[in-house]
């Protein structure tokens, strides 16, 4: 498989999703900050290539995203709504990235899985990929994307 330059592509896909559907401006790349709690949504995909994507945010950033997406006040959000929005975010960024990488191929994206997991620090050996930490104002959104040969 040819080596892909995934970092700019992943940033482009994430920014398009955040700005268009989540009304959230990306202020720049973040160097990362310690978080006591992370909410991580993960999707996997199969097709001409296989892989996975995680979207992780601290509670404040996840609340901000849910509030913007649902057009509801942060204080009125139920935890389930924040989960749903993080799940949808991971799904959309993955679809957006795949459309950019290989628009002529067909992919199947799994249903998002959610958990209070720390995001990966790097893409595991044997995979191509990228991890980006984006400053979205109320915190950091970390997106990791890994792609490999089909199973």
């Amino acid at each position: 498989m040819p080596v892909l330059e995934l970092s700019p592509l992943l940033t482009e896909a994430a920014c398009a999703v955040l700005e268009t559907m989540f009304f959230t401006e990306v202020l720049g790349e973040s160097l990362g900050e310690p978080q006591e709690y992370w909410l991580t949504a993960q999707v996997e995909f199969q097709g001409n290539r296989c892989g996975w994507l995680t979207a992780s945010a601290g509670l404040a950033a996840a609340r901000q995203l849910a509030s913007n997406f649902l057009c509801e006040d942060e204080t009125s959000l139920a935890p389930g709504q924040i989960d749903e929005v993080m799940a949808e975010l991971s799904n959309m960024v993955c679809g957006s990235a795949l459309s950019r990488i290989d628009p002529s191929s067909k992919f199947a994206i799994s249903h998002p899985r959610l958990g209070p997991h720390k995001p990966p620090e790097t893409v595991p050996p044997g995979w191509q990929g990228a991890c980006q930490s984006l400053d979205i104002g109320d915190g950091v959104l970390r997106i990791c994307f890994a792609i490999g040969e089909p199973v």
Binding site: M92, G95, S96, L98, S99, D102, S104, K106, F107
Partner: peptide, 12 residues
Amino acid sequence: VSTDGTDVRMQQ
């Protein structure tokens, strides 16, 4: 209305 924006899926 889908996240799948690949040409092949749209055509299908």
